[in-house]
Design a protein around this nucleic acid. Structure first.
Lengths: 265, 265
DNA sequence: GTAACATAACATCAGATCGCGATAAGAAAT
DNA sequence: ATTTCTTATCGCGATCTGATGTTATGTTAC
């Protein structure tokens, strides 16, 4: 159903359906619950439950008789959507990133699925200090022994499942970590971009608060663009991309002075 | 087994056993894994798993051949232990506390099981802003609609399952909420106490950051004492106790100028 | 007031997870 | 080296949770 199809595997059934419903709504602009019942072959109740969840995450808006889509920017930066894309590539990128981490270091992670993939690989690099504002990452890290977890608080965003806003930016300012791993929603040959002002705020603070900055980019991110310019690629010490990234794009970034490394699957 | 027995119901079997093992270790000072196998009738593997978990939470220390207890203060302030006590009373106190909250307010909660009980009652007071450093509370609140969640970050403590330390205190300083609900490990007729310096730090910051301060105290807390003095009871606008609290203790607190309210079961 | 829609309240079923032990492999003490 | 203790891995069964539908009970529009 629409352009989401390519990669909706390994996602729970309702989550996948919700993503598809979201796409459907975005495509059609405004649909009724019954439309969705027909389109997805589930009961009205389930449709409503899905829509409630999507609304809670700010993806759609409900009104009596149907739903409308929110601005696409919100949709695209939604976690559920992001989770569907480029799983294998993200893992490869995470493995590459892992090699940059030494025991004893302090690492900052942003609220990106790329960073989340990295979390799974951190358990045996000990001791380690990890700072993040991403709730799923925090949840995982609480179970690790010998990992000092520094949660970056802030205002919870259901859309990103992370903490943000001024309080978060302030918390970040107070830190100074060895490493930062972060991701963005779009990357050009020269710059990293993100749609949302608030998120940009936090990410920029993170850039200021880390000594070595690493940008994690799967190929889906390239060739796209987004509203707010986050930083030039040269602000990052390393940009890690996956193998599926077209060589000419890598070259273009390198021509502009960026350090690009390719993660092997 | 020891003084824990009174109230270990409604806790998962392993959690209960872990609490009992903890108590056993605290009582005997130092025991071997095999001792525990005999005492609890489970396999050596399970004992080790339990001990690993207790060690992760900082309750015991493992060494080859057995385990030793950590200072009792840590044990007593352990979440798992706290959860076992005075469930019904905590719920009554929470219901009472709930009546003080109006839609639109901002509420701060500390990392106490009393506060956690209150969280369950907040879903339909909307809109609402809730700030807390307690991970279980955060987890619950992320699912609430129309509740603005402000997570107070900091260094994660497995013992308390919350965030603390300087970063947390700083995050608290930046706020100013209408209400604060907090609890402590011990209360005398004049003061509130807590064992751990770091926790005291955060709680005191919270006291400074709220307009109206409410202390939630189940009767188990009274008549005990602990190392660090947190604040005089008169610093709280209200102290809520449960019905099982001896009348003379309530009177004593009132004689010292505290405002004490009794929560009805 | 009635029809369409939305929510609430169970009931059910499947899949996932948990808890636990057994066995085996690994480390540390002696 | 041998013994003792610890950890890792697998498997089984109990348990829980999550996802869904159904029916019943609101709500809102007209």
């Amino acid at each position: 159903m629409t352009e989401l199809d390519g990669d909706t595997t390994e996602l729970s059934r309702p989550a996948r359906r919700q993503a598809e419903i979201a796409a459907y709504v975005v495509k059609h602009g405004s649909v009724s619950a019954n439309d969705l019942v027909e389109a997805f072959g589930v009961s009205v109740m389930t449709v409503h439950r899905d829509l409630d969840e999507l609304e809670r995450r700010g993806v759609v808006r409900k009104y009596r008789g149907g739903v409308t889509a929110q601005p696409t920017s919100v949709f695209e930066s939604n976690v559920a959507y992001r989770l569907t894309t480029a799983q294998a590539e993200k893992m490869a990128i995470a493995r590459h990133a892992r090699t940059m981490i030494e025991p004893g270091m302090s690492v900052m992670l942003d609220d990106s699925t790329s960073a989340l993939a990295l979390v799974d690989l951190l358990e045996d690099i000990t001791p380690l200090t990890v700072a993040t504002n991403f709730l799923p990452a925090i949840a995982k890290l609480t179970g690790y022994r010998d990992v000092t977890l520094l949660a970056l608080g802030g205002i919870y965003s259901a859309t990103h499942d992370s903490f943000g806003g001024m309080p978060c930016a302030e918390a970040v300012e107070a830190l100074n970590t060895d490493l930062l791993f972060c991701s963005v929603s779009a990357v050009s040959a020269t710059h990293a971009f993100h749609q949302e002002q608030e998120i940009v705020l936090v990410k920029q603070a993170m850039l200021r608060a880390a000594r070595t900055k690493v940008l994690l980019v799967d190929h889906v991110k390239l060739q796209r663009t987004a509203l707010h310019r986050l930083a030039p690629l040269t602000d990052f010490d390393v940009v890690v991309v996956d193998e599926k990234t077209p060589a000419e794009l890598i070259q273009a970034a390198r021509d502009h002075g960026a350090t690009v490394e390719v993660a092997k699957l």
